[in-house]
Nucleic acid binder design. Structure first.
Lengths: 228, 228
DNA sequence: ACTGATGTTTGACTTAAGTCAAGGCGCAAC
DNA sequence: GTTGCGCCTTGACTTAAGTCAAACATCAGT
């Protein structure tokens, strides 16, 4: 598949004309990262942003004691590093490949140049950033206003809703990563999964979770219920 | 002062030509809110965004038990509600005037229309959203990876750095609001201020705080030090 | 298939920070 | 001035969640 085609297939760039896609294609660079490899670290100079073609990437920060807060886990077609393109000079968080990941890299200055000529692209980027803002706001809300069982319930329901068919949510990240995403640690996550399991809200297996009581989880997520 | 003048004086719109300012002025509406009045509530339809002309506005969410997490406290010339303009249909948080506040309101659709004709305005908005994203990311970091003394130290240093001259930081929000901003409650804030005071990091008075040991606060903010 | 590295669970313990309740301070209105 | 109402502080208590340590399961790479 040639570059213009590839770019046209990315939702962020939906609505662009073939010619616009071609001008983006002219500045994009393919880059592949192996499992565990870092795209950039927090504080690095923001030289451009990436769009994932295949693979999985986590965006995170580490505390001085080594605890990790994951901001997002991103998959195919999702962009990252874009906040550094338009403001400030450094990346606000680190990005690391969780599995082998192919990506397109868009250098900052060239991309800004293209965008100032393409209002529809600018609007797409505005929509993207607004969406990110919304997600982060909800993470702040969860961290500050909910306890871990509430966050976990909200997360499971989120997975459940974006699930193809069954009530079985398959976990495609490790429970360690999941703990990082929920702003807690593996031990706490493990204990709370067990309590939810005991209360027959869910059935936990190694790589998946069966939702048994959706309403119960929803109550937990809203803070209208507590675990024993 | 006429509308075009007013708009030209807002940093977000810096760099726009007088004609561009005039087209923004044509769609802007002046609105004044009294102390305690709400601009919008979380979940309301996102019909447009505001820029503060004078006054002070808090952006926040409430938990089901009534605890408040403040996202930002905004002052003159700062915009808010902009994330709802470009994505999604509702405001992700609530906005309330802390004092009598004059503002300009930009209706969503008209603003999007103007922006798609003005690339430089689009770039300003992208920069704004990126900056907000950065601030929220750092709030997530603080909430998840730091304890309250660390958050408070970071906040005091922030005030200190944006301070005109002296080592005396004057508090222009109540300590209750400050607790909400730090993701904690007034009692906890009070206790920690006292501990910092006892350790001679700061000198607390009613409406202001004197910074005595900047380095100590910095260490606390970095997690390299603990309060007794 | 082996094996070392990662990921997961469990138990005992510690602790930061929240809750509840009472009292003091300070400003604004009468 | 004094009354009254938010704001702020303090103390005693509770609790969610983190730490430390040990054992076990699972996975990826040789």
């Amino acid at each position: 598949m040639d570059m213009t085609q590839t770019i046209a297939s990315i939702p962020l760039f939906a609505g662009l004309t073939p010619m616009q896609c071609a001008s983006l294609g002219a500045i994009a660079v393919c880059r592949t990262f192996s499992r565990g490899q870092s795209f950039f670290y927090e504080g690095d100079e923001g030289i451009g942003f990436y769009v994932i073609l295949s693979g999985k990437v986590k965006i995170f920060k580490l505390s001085s004691e080594g605890k990790e807060q994951i901001f997002h886990i991103l998959e195919e077609h999702e962009p990252f590093g874009e906040a550094a393109v338009f403001a400030g000079e450094h990346y606000p968080a680190s990005a690391q490949a969780l599995v082998e990941t192919r990506s397109l890299f868009f250098p900052r200055l060239k991309f800004v140049e293209v965008i100032s000529r393409e209002p529809s692209l600018a609007l797409s980027m505005l929509a993207l950033l607004s969406l990110r803002l919304r997600k982060l706001a909800s993470l702040v809300e969860d961290l500050s206003l909910k306890e871990v069982p509430g966050r976990l319930a909200a997360y499971l329901l989120y997975l459940y809703e974006h699930n193809d068919d069954s009530a079985t949510v398959k976990l495609d990240i490790s429970k360690n990563q999941m703990a990082g995403l929920l702003g807690t640690i593996p031990e706490t996550l493990s204990r709370i999964l067990k309590r939810m399991n005991d209360e027959k809200l869910i059935k936990v297996t190694t790589r998946s979770i069966l939702i048994l009581n959706e309403q119960g989880l929803a109550d937990l997520a809203r803070g209208a219920r507590r675990l024993a």
